[in-house]
Simulated scan of single mutants.
Amino acid sequence: MGFHKSSMEIKLKDGHVLTAYCRRLSGDATYSELDLDEFLGTKKGQFAWGCTDFSTHSADVDLHLEGPTNEPMLHAHLDDGTGNMQDSEVNLASCIKNIDGNLRFMDCF
């Protein structure tokens, strides 16, 4: 299950740090942060899990909760390696989970 289904106040800080209040097994919620630059990079103008430092190759980074289930979609203009910027998006719920109140990257590739 994606972290967004058990988290509140999901935000992006400094263009690369995911923040949220995540529900614990006990039912209470705790503040958690996860630096996306440690797990998310770019390849040819697209987001790439398992790479690093996407924020150094991006502009106009924004997080939106989209669709009927509020999927956490990260949007940005990413350098394609030739100096051109391309629109890209990635669903953060595909690789990030809430583990007892903590945002955690989970291998997903």
Results as ranks from 00 to 15, higher is better:
residue 55 S to I: 09
residue 95 C to H: 11
residue 8 M to N: 13
residue 39 F to W: 05
residue 47 F to E: 07
residue 76 A to M: 01
residue 80 D to R: 05
residue 74 L to W: 04
residue 55 S to Y: 08
residue 74 L to I: 04
residue 82 T to F: 11
residue 9 E to T: 03
residue 22 C to G: 08
residue 88 S to M: 01
residue 17 V to H: 00
residue 56 T to K: 14
residue 47 F to Y: 12
residue 30 T to H: 06
residue 48 A to D: 01
residue 87 D to M: 13
residue 97 K to A: 14
residue 14 D to Y: 06
residue 44 K to N: 14
residue 9 E to D: 11
residue 92 L to G: 06
residue 89 E to P: 00
residue 11 K to P: 00
residue 65 L to P: 01
residue 32 S to P: 12
residue 34 L to G: 08
residue 27 G to I: 08
residue 89 E to L: 03
residue 24 R to L: 04
residue 87 D to I: 10
residue 55 S to T: 10
residue 70 N to W: 12
residue 81 G to T: 13
residue 11 K to W: 04
residue 52 T to R: 09
residue 30 T to Y: 05
residue 67 G to W: 08
residue 27 G to E: 01
residue 17 V to R: 03
residue 53 D to G: 08
residue 78 L to N: 11
residue 35 D to K: 10
residue 59 A to D: 14
residue 86 Q to E: 13
residue 34 L to D: 01
residue 61 V to Y: 03
residue 67 G to S: 07
residue 26 S to V: 14
residue 59 A to K: 15
residue 38 E to G: 06
residue 30 T to L: 09
residue 77 H to P: 01
residue 75 H to P: 02
residue 44 K to D: 14
residue 18 L to G: 02
residue 15 G to M: 02
residue 60 D to P: 00
residue 71 E to F: 06
residue 42 T to Y: 04
residue 92 L to Y: 00
residue 68 P to V: 14
residue 37 D to L: 09
residue 21 Y to V: 00
residue 85 M to A: 13
residue 41 G to N: 09
residue 18 L to K: 01
residue 9 E to G: 11
residue 28 D to S: 11
residue 48 A to H: 11
residue 82 T to L: 09
residue 66 E to V: 13
residue 74 L to N: 08
residue 38 E to M: 12
residue 51 C to K: 12
residue 38 E to K: 15
residue 20 A to E: 00
residue 92 L to V: 06
residue 13 K to N: 12
residue 90 V to P: 00
residue 61 V to T: 15
residue 77 H to I: 02
residue 59 A to W: 02
residue 5 K to A: 07
residue 12 L to V: 00
residue 14 D to F: 05
residue 6 S to F: 13
residue 6 S to N: 14
residue 74 L to E: 05
